[in-house]
Design a binder for these strands. Sequence first.
RNA 1: CGGGGUAUAGCUCAGCUUGGUAGAGCGCUGCGUUCGGGACGCAGAGGCCGCGUGUUCAAAUCACGCUACCCCGACCA
Length: 566
Amino acid sequence: MRVSQFFLSTLKEAPAEAELASHRLMLRAGLIRRLGSGLYNWMPLGLRVLRKVEAIVREEMNKAGALELLMPAVTPAELWQETGRWEVFGPQMLKIKDRHERDFCFGPTHEEVITDIARKEIRSYKQLPLNFYQIQTKFRDEIRPRFGVMRAREFVMKDAYSFHTDKASLEQTYEVMYQTYSNIFTRLGLQFRAVRADTGAIGGTGSHEFHVLADSGEDAIAFCPDSDYAANVELAEALAPTTPRAEPAQAMQKVHTPGAKTIEQLCDFLKVTPQQTLKALAVMHNDAFSLLLLRGDHELNEIKLQKILDPFRFATPEEIERHMGGKAGYIGPVGVSVNIIADRAVTAMSDFVCGANDEGYHLAGVNFGRDLPLPTQVADIRNAVAGDPSPDGKGALEICRGIEVGHIFQLGNKYSQAMEATYLDENGQHQVMEMGCYGIGVSRIVGAAIEQGNDDRGIIFPEAIAPFQVAIAAIGFDRSETVREAAVKLHDELQNAGFDVLLDDRGERPGVMFADLELIGIPHRITIGERGLKEGQVEYQARKGGEMQTVALAEVQNFLKEACLA
RNA sequence: CGGGGUAUAGCUCAGCUUGGUAGAGCGCUGCGUUCGGGACGCAGAGGCCGCGUGUUCAAAUCACGCUACCCCGACCA
């Protein structure tokens, strides 16, 4: 491909809307253009990348025995009403009416549609198991679309759904998909991690998310460097402390702490660490008041709390005063008779600081057993933090951030039951199918890959998904017959040899060409100029860095073959 | 949804406080000079100042309404 026949639309400055590196670079490189909130045009350059991602996903899915099909993006309301998700999905679902005032939605996912296919088409256990997938545009009306294609409303997703006679078969396919996903992300050239995920209300026995590791990721992942344990921080169990509570060393005393309403202010004021403080959070469960106790440096995990109090909400200042007798900002567990739920870590605290239930005062040197009873209700209600022991007992947890690009799920029979997707078993009896589902955020992967691969000059694409593998920067293309001939010849040769090659034939100044080619992230660059051609040589530069190398023109093809494999 | 902010040339932004009829840089077009890391000169094109209603002799500028877009949003007691 020649630049003069292609469409490069690079920008020196990024539009103000973008804050994330990958979003800025995708706009600057001209991969995408915004059409509306959460809606993006994929420009020719960007589409090449997207298609390469799709191709790898498709190849690996096929290899795993999954069968590609294609379902409509617009789906009738009746199917969603059968499972109740017409209501459950809520405003995230884009609902539309046709000319006859019939209800439809733009599919946010396709469990209902595929289950409808299964119940109509599958009769016998002999047909199972089956794994169908599609690569298709989805729409979810996100509350706040952001980060470009990373959290867009319309996006491309690969979604697969498997059907089974029993759980054992489902688990088998789940394992195959787990491996397939690992293969896909490895081939894509991404650093990723499979993490345990919430099985939540949907039930089922297993679920893993696949995360591309990046500091800007929206999810926090707790992982153990000494084992393969990894879980979303929301799910990672914070174990009970193993060290016993220290004996009281201080007497309890009331200290005047004017204005110290937050843990941070309190620590500043009393010159203590957050670990020595105890914070109390007031929540309401229906009409019942509860006081939650957490160590000052820990955060409440609402998902965990919800398993104890569902639903719950934070108490209003009026409710706090009514139940505690003290003002918000200075509440504590000493001398009160309300329901108390303590985090596990709290039970190991001694000589701690907490609110005195008296505006402007805290208590210091507080100890369980002496100044107040040890809480009877103790639970894991906090987020795991770095340094916590790993739940699998092998070392300490670390926290990193990730971008969720894949999710595999053992669904069980939630949808097949609701929609009566059954088959006849060996005994001629109707049985409900077991289902699994497996998603990959195809368009999000492009953003995630750039998030993981970029520098101050632009994008650094992994070899496998770069829009072009090799760029030829022809210096003086417009005015040097020698350069023109050599560049075109090299371009044709490389193309015939199977390289995805882009020839910059614009005759631009070298700086302009280099800047553009680096911005769009092409992994390999060959520079052809009159100077080198006199010696029969060209220059090679890898996008990832490394020294500029001189290569004999005749050797370029072999050289690139090695470079591309490396 | 709640809070905050922005809207002026293709992009990044100034002008608005103090009303007087539109600006810069980049990009784009033409010509010339340049030519191994985003060149330079000259000449151009390009704007219903988001939309609407008011105030005024006069509105990008002031007021009100609308729309779009962006940012933040448990608690840290």
